[in-house]
Amino acid sequence: MSTLEIRGLEVSVTTEKGPIEILKGVDLTIRSGETHAIMGPNGSGKSTLAYAIAGHPKYTITRGSLTLDGENLLEMKVDERAKAGLFLAMQYPVEVPGVSVSNFLRTAATALRGEAPKLRTWVGEVKSAMKALNMDASFSERNVNEGFSGGEKKRHEIMQLELLKPKIAILDETDSGLDVDALKIVSEGVNRAKEANDLGILLITHYTRILRYIKPDFVHVFANGHIVEEGGPELAEKLEEHGYVEYVNS
């Protein structure tokens, strides 16, 4: 049983004109097996929350706390947070030229597990993860995210989620740029990972579409750098009907 606790989190970015505050006090608790959807308009700070939790150097935490099972994530480097059990599926996964998917995955698994996975079982693990996400076997010889279509990038992210077995996963607009078939395949991957590892999920999205495939236990509406309303799955239905207008103007 794991718990990610976010308390009074305030985050700013440095710009040419000085620091700009983006998150203005976020409180959120995510436990193993729970799925939390964060929904909100563009520019509300949803992605900043995701990157700040993962430790992206662009963001400065000015106030608040961030712990995973009581351990202070703010004192950890990016790789240490991953080792603590955190995973971020990115909206725009980064190309790493010249580094093959298979080399990347094995290096990551070795770092996270503390020893190199046994070659024979590892090859099998990767193959079945790829097959489950409807990915061609030749995929592992390609360079990380290089020349991947939008859908391939997202499948690759979820394949990592299944292979690296984190405790808490943040999915940053994993649904963006996916057609219905790809959305279904990717969502099934997320549900498998949750089933297999009692994963806690923070699902960031703009649209309700993905919530048909990944059922949230809690829905949080995000606007202007903080959570403005919380509820169960029914809140998503309300958003589907009325949009974010009332929150943006509030």
Binding site: D79, R81, K83, M90, V96, F104, T107, A108
Partner: peptide, 9 residues
């Protein structure tokens, strides 16, 4: 950042 977010030092 991408590589480190996967646990790679």
């Amino acid at each position: 950042f991408y590589l480190m977010s996967r646990g790679i030092p």
